[in-house]
Protein backbone atom coordinates (compact mmCIF):
# COMPACT_ATOMS: atom_id res chain seq x y z
CA UNK A 1 0.00 0.00 0.00
CA UNK A 2 2.76 2.42 0.98
CA UNK A 3 4.78 1.21 -1.99
CA UNK A 4 1.84 2.07 -4.24
CA UNK A 5 1.52 5.52 -2.63
CA UNK A 6 5.19 6.27 -3.31
CA UNK A 7 4.95 4.86 -6.85
CA UNK A 8 1.93 7.07 -7.51
CA UNK A 9 3.81 10.05 -6.16
CA UNK A 10 6.71 9.31 -8.50
CA UNK A 11 4.44 9.08 -11.53
CA UNK A 12 2.56 12.18 -10.47
CA UNK A 13 5.79 14.12 -10.15
CA UNK A 14 6.72 13.25 -13.74
CA UNK A 15 3.36 14.51 -14.94
CA UNK A 16 3.39 17.62 -12.78
CA UNK A 17 6.87 18.64 -13.75
CA UNK A 18 5.75 18.33 -17.38
CA UNK A 19 8.40 15.68 -18.04
CA UNK A 20 5.76 13.46 -19.61
CA UNK A 21 4.42 16.26 -21.82
CA UNK A 22 7.90 17.07 -23.12
CA UNK A 23 8.71 13.44 -23.76
CA UNK A 24 5.41 12.79 -25.54
CA UNK A 25 5.81 15.81 -27.83
CA UNK A 26 9.41 14.95 -28.73
CA UNK A 27 8.51 11.30 -29.26
CA UNK A 28 5.68 12.20 -31.60
CA UNK A 29 8.18 14.32 -33.50
CA UNK A 30 10.55 11.38 -33.68
CA UNK A 31 7.87 8.99 -34.96
CA UNK A 32 6.83 11.54 -37.61
CA UNK A 33 10.42 11.95 -38.80
CA UNK A 34 10.89 8.20 -38.73
CA UNK A 35 7.77 7.68 -40.88
CA UNK A 36 8.99 10.26 -43.41
CA UNK A 37 12.44 8.67 -43.45
CA UNK A 38 11.04 5.19 -43.91
CA UNK A 39 8.82 6.44 -46.72
CA UNK A 40 11.74 8.11 -48.54
CA UNK A 41 13.89 5.03 -48.01
CA UNK A 42 11.23 2.77 -49.51
CA UNK A 43 10.70 5.06 -52.53
CA UNK A 44 14.40 5.19 -53.13
CA UNK A 45 14.78 1.45 -52.77
CA UNK A 46 11.89 0.68 -55.10
CA UNK A 47 13.12 3.02 -57.85
CA UNK A 48 16.65 1.58 -57.62
CA UNK A 49 15.18 -1.89 -57.71
CA UNK A 50 13.04 -1.02 -60.76
CA UNK A 51 16.07 0.30 -62.65
CA UNK A 52 18.09 -2.79 -61.69
CA UNK A 53 15.40 -5.19 -62.93
CA UNK A 54 15.09 -3.28 -66.22
CA UNK A 55 18.90 -3.47 -66.61
CA UNK A 56 19.33 -7.12 -65.66
CA UNK A 57 15.89 -8.46 -66.46
CA UNK A 58 15.89 -10.30 -63.09
CA UNK A 59 12.90 -10.49 -60.72
CA UNK A 60 12.66 -8.52 -57.47
CA UNK A 61 15.68 -9.04 -55.20
CA UNK A 62 15.12 -10.72 -51.80
CA UNK A 63 17.16 -8.00 -50.12
CA UNK A 64 14.25 -5.64 -49.29
CA UNK A 65 13.72 -7.41 -45.96
CA UNK A 66 17.40 -6.84 -45.14
CA UNK A 67 17.19 -3.11 -45.80
CA UNK A 68 13.80 -2.70 -44.15
CA UNK A 69 15.09 -4.62 -41.15
CA UNK A 70 18.02 -2.20 -40.93
CA UNK A 71 15.52 0.67 -40.89
CA UNK A 72 13.56 -1.00 -38.07
CA UNK A 73 16.81 -1.61 -36.22
CA UNK A 74 17.66 2.09 -36.50
CA UNK A 75 14.24 2.97 -35.12
CA UNK A 76 14.50 0.56 -32.22
CA UNK A 77 18.05 1.65 -31.49
CA UNK A 78 16.82 5.23 -31.20
CA UNK A 79 14.05 4.11 -28.83
CA UNK A 80 16.59 2.17 -26.77
CA UNK A 81 19.02 5.08 -26.68
CA UNK A 82 16.36 7.67 -25.83
CA UNK A 83 14.94 5.49 -23.06
CA UNK A 84 18.41 4.90 -21.67
CA UNK A 85 19.09 8.62 -21.43
CA UNK A 86 15.60 9.24 -20.06
CA UNK A 87 16.02 6.58 -17.40
CA UNK A 88 19.23 8.13 -16.15
CA UNK A 89 17.90 11.68 -16.20
CA UNK A 90 14.62 10.74 -14.54
CA UNK A 91 16.12 8.78 -11.67
CA UNK A 92 19.48 10.49 -11.16
CA UNK A 93 18.29 12.63 -8.26
CA UNK A 94 15.34 10.63 -7.06
CA UNK A 95 16.84 9.91 -3.64
CA UNK A 96 19.82 12.28 -3.51
CA UNK A 97 17.74 15.23 -4.72
CA UNK A 98 15.08 14.60 -2.09
CA UNK A 99 17.70 14.32 0.62
CA UNK A 100 19.33 17.54 -0.60
CA UNK A 101 15.98 19.36 -0.73
CA UNK A 102 14.82 17.95 2.61
CA UNK A 103 11.53 16.64 1.24
CA UNK A 104 12.23 13.19 2.71
CA UNK A 105 12.29 14.64 6.24
CA UNK A 106 8.52 14.57 6.38
CA UNK A 107 8.17 11.22 4.56
CA UNK A 108 10.65 8.94 6.35
CA UNK A 109 9.20 9.40 9.88
CA UNK A 110 5.84 8.09 8.69
CA UNK A 111 4.86 4.54 9.66
CA UNK A 112 6.45 3.12 6.51
CA UNK A 113 9.66 1.26 5.85
CA UNK A 114 12.50 2.95 4.09
CA UNK A 115 12.59 -0.01 1.70
CA UNK A 116 9.08 0.93 0.63
CA UNK A 117 10.30 4.35 -0.45
CA UNK A 118 12.98 2.80 -2.68
CA UNK A 119 10.78 0.09 -4.14
CA UNK A 120 7.89 2.52 -4.62
CA UNK A 121 10.10 4.90 -6.57
CA UNK A 122 11.53 2.01 -8.57
CA UNK A 123 8.08 0.73 -9.46
CA UNK A 124 6.88 4.20 -10.44
CA UNK A 125 9.79 4.70 -12.81
CA UNK A 126 9.62 1.12 -14.11
CA UNK A 127 5.95 1.55 -14.92
CA UNK A 128 6.48 4.83 -16.79
CA UNK A 129 9.56 3.65 -18.67
CA UNK A 130 8.02 0.32 -19.67
CA UNK A 131 4.88 2.03 -20.90
CA UNK A 132 7.00 4.46 -22.88
CA UNK A 133 9.08 1.69 -24.43
CA UNK A 134 6.01 -0.33 -25.38
CA UNK A 135 4.35 2.70 -26.99
CA UNK A 136 7.50 3.68 -28.87
CA UNK A 137 8.16 0.15 -30.14
CA UNK A 138 4.54 0.06 -31.29
CA UNK A 139 5.14 3.39 -33.02
CA UNK A 140 8.16 2.00 -34.86
CA UNK A 141 6.46 -1.30 -35.71
CA UNK A 142 3.27 0.36 -36.95
CA UNK A 143 5.32 2.76 -39.08
CA UNK A 144 7.31 -0.17 -40.51
CA UNK A 145 4.10 -2.01 -41.25
CA UNK A 146 2.12 0.87 -42.77
CA UNK A 147 4.89 2.78 -44.52
CA UNK A 148 7.45 0.06 -45.16
CA UNK A 149 5.16 -2.97 -45.51
CA UNK A 150 7.57 -4.85 -43.30
CA UNK A 151 7.09 -6.69 -40.00
CA UNK A 152 10.13 -7.52 -37.84
CA UNK A 153 10.22 -10.93 -36.08
CA UNK A 154 10.08 -11.54 -32.29
CA UNK A 155 9.04 -8.00 -31.51
CA UNK A 156 7.66 -8.88 -28.05
CA UNK A 157 10.88 -10.60 -27.07
CA UNK A 158 12.87 -7.60 -28.34
CA UNK A 159 10.65 -5.16 -26.46
CA UNK A 160 11.12 -7.06 -23.20
CA UNK A 161 14.87 -6.87 -23.71
CA UNK A 162 14.76 -3.11 -24.30
CA UNK A 163 12.74 -2.84 -21.08
CA UNK A 164 15.44 -4.90 -19.38
CA UNK A 165 18.05 -2.41 -20.66
CA UNK A 166 16.08 0.40 -19.06
CA UNK A 167 15.68 -1.54 -15.78
CA UNK A 168 19.43 -2.17 -15.63
CA UNK A 169 20.12 1.54 -15.99
CA UNK A 170 17.34 2.37 -13.53
CA UNK A 171 18.78 0.02 -10.89
CA UNK A 172 22.24 1.50 -11.33
CA UNK A 173 20.96 5.07 -11.19
CA UNK A 174 18.85 4.38 -8.08
CA UNK A 175 21.79 2.80 -6.28
CA UNK A 176 23.96 5.78 -7.21
CA UNK A 177 21.26 8.14 -6.00
CA UNK A 178 21.29 6.56 -2.54
CA UNK A 179 25.09 6.81 -2.38
CA UNK A 180 26.06 10.09 -4.04
CA UNK A 181 24.84 13.61 -4.64
CA UNK A 182 22.73 14.15 -7.75
CA UNK A 183 25.59 15.63 -9.75
CA UNK A 184 28.15 13.02 -8.78
CA UNK A 185 25.66 10.27 -9.53
CA UNK A 186 24.91 11.76 -12.95
CA UNK A 187 28.58 11.89 -13.85
CA UNK A 188 29.25 8.34 -12.64
CA UNK A 189 26.23 6.74 -14.30
CA UNK A 190 26.88 8.50 -17.61
CA UNK A 191 30.51 7.42 -17.55
CA UNK A 192 29.48 3.81 -16.94
CA UNK A 193 26.86 4.09 -19.67
CA UNK A 194 29.59 5.37 -22.00
CA UNK A 195 31.85 2.50 -20.99
CA UNK A 196 29.08 -0.02 -21.78
CA UNK A 197 28.33 1.50 -25.19
CA UNK A 198 32.01 1.80 -26.09
CA UNK A 199 32.66 -1.71 -24.77
CA UNK A 200 29.93 -2.99 -27.07
CA UNK A 201 31.52 -1.22 -30.05
CA UNK A 202 34.95 -2.60 -29.16
CA UNK A 203 33.45 -6.09 -28.99
CA UNK A 204 31.90 -5.71 -32.47
CA UNK A 205 35.20 -4.46 -33.87
CA UNK A 206 36.92 -7.37 -32.14
CA UNK A 207 34.55 -9.81 -33.82
CA UNK A 208 35.14 -8.19 -37.22
CA UNK A 209 38.92 -8.09 -36.77
CA UNK A 210 39.12 -11.44 -35.00
CA UNK A 211 40.70 -9.81 -31.96
CA UNK A 212 40.23 -11.88 -28.83
CA UNK A 213 41.42 -9.06 -26.56
CA UNK A 214 38.87 -6.62 -27.94
CA UNK A 215 36.08 -9.15 -27.53
CA UNK A 216 37.21 -9.69 -23.92
CA UNK A 217 37.11 -5.95 -23.28
CA UNK A 218 33.54 -5.94 -24.55
CA UNK A 219 32.57 -8.84 -22.30
CA UNK A 220 34.23 -7.14 -19.34
CA UNK A 221 32.23 -3.98 -19.93
CA UNK A 222 29.00 -5.95 -20.18
CA UNK A 223 29.69 -7.57 -16.81
CA UNK A 224 30.24 -4.12 -15.31
CA UNK A 225 27.02 -2.82 -16.89
CA UNK A 226 25.06 -5.27 -19.06
CA UNK A 227 22.80 -2.66 -20.69
CA UNK A 228 24.56 -2.60 -24.05
CA UNK A 229 24.79 -6.39 -24.33
CA UNK A 230 21.04 -6.69 -23.64
CA UNK A 231 20.39 -4.15 -26.38
CA UNK A 232 22.52 -6.20 -28.76
CA UNK A 233 20.56 -9.30 -27.91
CA UNK A 234 17.35 -7.35 -28.56
CA UNK A 235 18.73 -6.25 -31.93
CA UNK A 236 19.62 -9.86 -32.72
CA UNK A 237 16.17 -11.24 -32.03
CA UNK A 238 14.24 -8.60 -33.99
CA UNK A 239 16.20 -9.15 -37.22
CA UNK A 240 15.71 -12.02 -39.66
CA UNK A 241 18.82 -14.23 -39.76
CA UNK A 242 19.34 -13.21 -43.40
CA UNK A 243 19.73 -9.58 -42.33
CA UNK A 244 22.13 -10.47 -39.52
CA UNK A 245 24.48 -12.44 -41.75
CA UNK A 246 24.17 -9.85 -44.52
CA UNK A 247 25.01 -6.85 -42.30
CA UNK A 248 27.60 -8.63 -40.16
CA UNK A 249 29.24 -7.06 -37.07
CA UNK A 250 28.05 -3.46 -36.82
CA UNK A 251 27.77 -0.56 -34.38
CA UNK A 252 24.09 -1.16 -33.61
CA UNK A 253 23.80 -4.93 -33.61
CA UNK A 254 25.78 -8.12 -33.25
CA UNK A 255 26.36 -11.41 -35.01
CA UNK A 256 27.10 -13.22 -31.76
CA UNK A 257 24.09 -12.95 -29.47
CA UNK A 258 24.68 -12.87 -25.72
CA UNK A 259 23.55 -16.13 -24.11
CA UNK A 260 20.57 -16.85 -21.87
CA UNK A 261 23.07 -16.75 -19.01
CA UNK A 262 23.73 -13.11 -19.84
CA UNK A 263 19.99 -12.41 -19.59
CA UNK A 264 19.82 -14.14 -16.21
CA UNK A 265 22.87 -12.23 -15.12
CA UNK A 266 21.17 -8.96 -16.09
CA UNK A 267 18.04 -9.78 -14.13
CA UNK A 268 20.07 -10.75 -11.07
CA UNK A 269 22.15 -7.59 -11.60
CA UNK A 270 18.98 -5.47 -11.37
CA UNK A 271 17.81 -7.29 -8.25
CA UNK A 272 21.14 -6.98 -6.51
CA UNK A 273 21.38 -3.28 -7.26
CA UNK A 274 17.86 -2.62 -5.99
CA UNK A 275 18.61 -4.61 -2.83
CA UNK A 276 21.84 -2.63 -2.57
CA UNK A 277 19.90 0.64 -2.84
CA UNK A 278 17.56 -0.47 -0.07
CA UNK A 279 20.42 -1.49 2.21
CA UNK A 280 22.35 1.73 1.63
CA UNK A 281 19.28 3.91 2.12
CA UNK A 282 18.22 1.91 5.18
CA UNK A 283 21.45 2.75 6.98
CA UNK A 284 21.89 6.30 5.82
CA UNK A 285 21.55 9.34 8.05
CA UNK A 286 19.33 11.90 6.38
Amino acid sequence: MNVVAIARLTVREAFRRKVILGVVLLSLGFIALYAIGFHLFRDNYLSLEARRSVRTGAGPAPSYAVSASAMVLLGLYTVNFLTGIMTIFAAVGTVAGEIEAGTLDAIVPKPIGRWQIITGKYLGFALMLSTYIILMVCGVAITAHLVGHYGPPHLVHGTLLVILVSMILLSLTMLGSTLFSTMTNGVIVFMLYGVAVTGGLVEQLGTALNSDTMVKIGIGSSILLPSDSMWRLASYVVQPSLAISFIGPNPLGTTVPPSALAVHYSIVYCLMLVIGSVLVFQRRDL
Binding site: E13, R16, T103, D105, A106
Partner: peptide, 10 residues
Protein backbone atom coordinates in the same frame (compact mmCIF):
# COMPACT_ATOMS: atom_id res chain seq x y z
CA UNK B 1 10.66 19.32 10.16
CA UNK B 2 12.82 22.36 10.65
CA UNK B 3 13.27 22.95 6.93
CA UNK B 4 9.63 22.21 5.99
CA UNK B 5 10.48 21.50 2.38
CA UNK B 6 7.68 19.61 0.71
CA UNK B 7 6.82 18.32 -2.75
CA UNK B 8 5.94 21.69 -4.16
CA UNK B 9 4.23 20.33 -7.27
CA UNK B 10 1.45 18.92 -5.08
Amino acid sequence: PELFRFHEWL
